[in-house]
Amino acid sequence: MSTAPPPDAPAGIAAEPARVEEPPFRVPRDRADLHVFLQAALTLEHLTIPPYLTAMYTLRPGTNRPAFYAIRAVVLEEMLHMTLVANLLNAVGGTPLVARSRFVTGYPALLPYSRDKVPVALRHFGTDALDTFLSIERPEYVAEPPGHPSVAGDTGWTSIGQFYNTIRAGLVRLTAELGEAGLFNGDRRRQAGPEDFYNSGGEVFPVTGLASALTALRVITEQGEGVSHSVFDSDDLLFGEAREPAHYFRFNEIRRRRAYGPHDTPASGPTGPAIEVSWEDAYAIDPAAKVADYPPGSAVRRAAEHFNEAYARLLCLLERAYTRDPAALHAAVPAMLRLRELSVQLYRNPHPDPARRARGLHASATYEITEELLGRVRRSLR
């Protein structure tokens, strides 16, 4: 029997990557269809957070500070994107669901809405992790939404940008069919605003009609890929903030160990000051680690279980904020800090398995969220 990973599996992983459920390849036809697409967008925005957190938390303390702060800024903006999508879903009468086991993708997973089979795994900080992040955020030619003559031969999604363009087309179509007041008839008390969520780049704002809905989609796509033909996002234009490199280009700065200058372009690459990056100053981990790998009753197993419980708590707080009380977002910040504390208890420990320990691997967080765990956390929050 062969023990080689399947063709689609990332290096070092024997498991078949999970596949994220994607909506049908069409423009949303009605309100219920739009809810499905926006819930899928919420899942997509969350998909990147555990891998980004893993890279950030595996950095050895006191090292790679530019990389740490760059990844942290991206994580905060992904949280911003989740909240903007939740506002969008609430605005059109939907209910954002994040405290569900199906919401947390099993890792490794294939990047959805992509022609390329890009595996997304929980990897420690290093070139493999950065290359994956660049694949996730890469600016590409964005195909037209389904139904356009230029994509008549396509049967599935080609890019994340095309998926968001399709949501945009659905919003415009349904606004024309139902009227703005008819489509955007959700409970406005569920809308999170800038007073509910602090973020280093951009801000949360209520979605109350088509204009604010389209602005929310613009923030999400341009913070990730940059303004068309530019290295930078549009936060200076939308929020009056300092211009920053978009996610792809922040990761590329780390990967190439050089900052972008004010006049650099995607074609020129970064030509600014050098950035100090030390690839070896990270705790190496097994990207396919599971709680079951750790001996029952061991300190490492308890730490891994506590981490998953803390992450489930964060999801429950987010769902409370998105469905009932936007002010609950304030509790998400200490919940994130708790994750970092718990991660230290894991990543500093050599892996308990002798073979993996001999390869220099350490224990790691697994982000295994079950319905049983979520139920226990919900009861504790009450």
Rank of each mutant, 00 (worst) to 15 (best):
G182R: 13
L178G: 03
G202V: 09
A181V: 07
H247K: 02
V219A: 01
L237P: 06
T208S: 12
Q223P: 02
S230M: 12
G153R: 14
R243Q: 15
V204P: 04
G209E: 12
S230C: 06
I167L: 13
G170E: 04
A152C: 04
A246M: 11
P149N: 01
E195W: 08
T215C: 08
V172I: 14
L214C: 11
H229Y: 07
G240F: 11
V151F: 08
L237Y: 00
R190T: 06
G161S: 07
I220Y: 10
G193T: 12
V204F: 09
G147P: 02
L238M: 13
D196I: 08
A152N: 09
E222D: 13
F184R: 04
S212Q: 12
P245Y: 03
P206M: 05
R188S: 13
L237R: 15
P194W: 07
Q162I: 01
R190G: 10
R168C: 05
G193P: 10
D236N: 02
Y164F: 09
L217C: 13
N165R: 14
P245T: 12
S234Q: 11
F197Q: 11
V219C: 01
G186N: 00
G240A: 11
R258M: 12
G156D: 15
I167M: 06
L183D: 00
I167H: 12
R168D: 04
A192C: 09
A169V: 09
F184D: 00
S200N: 13
L174Y: 00
G240D: 13
T175C: 04
A213C: 12
E225I: 01
H229Q: 14
N199A: 15
F163K: 09
G209P: 10
T166N: 12
H229A: 14
L171E: 09
E222Q: 14
G226A: 02
G156I: 05
V151T: 11
D235A: 15
R190C: 04
E225V: 00
H247L: 03
N165S: 02
T208D: 13
R173E: 14
R255G: 06
G240H: 13
G209Q: 05
A246G: 08
N185I: 05
G179A: 06
A192Y: 10
Q162D: 12
A242C: 01
A192T: 00
L238F: 03
S200A: 06
F197N: 05
Q223T: 05
L214D: 07
D154Q: 03
S159G: 02
R218V: 08
G240N: 11
P206S: 07
G186W: 10
A259F: 08
F249S: 06
V227H: 07
D233W: 02
A152Q: 12
G202S: 13
L210A: 11
E180Q: 14
R188I: 09
F163R: 10
P245R: 10
E241Y: 05
S228E: 14
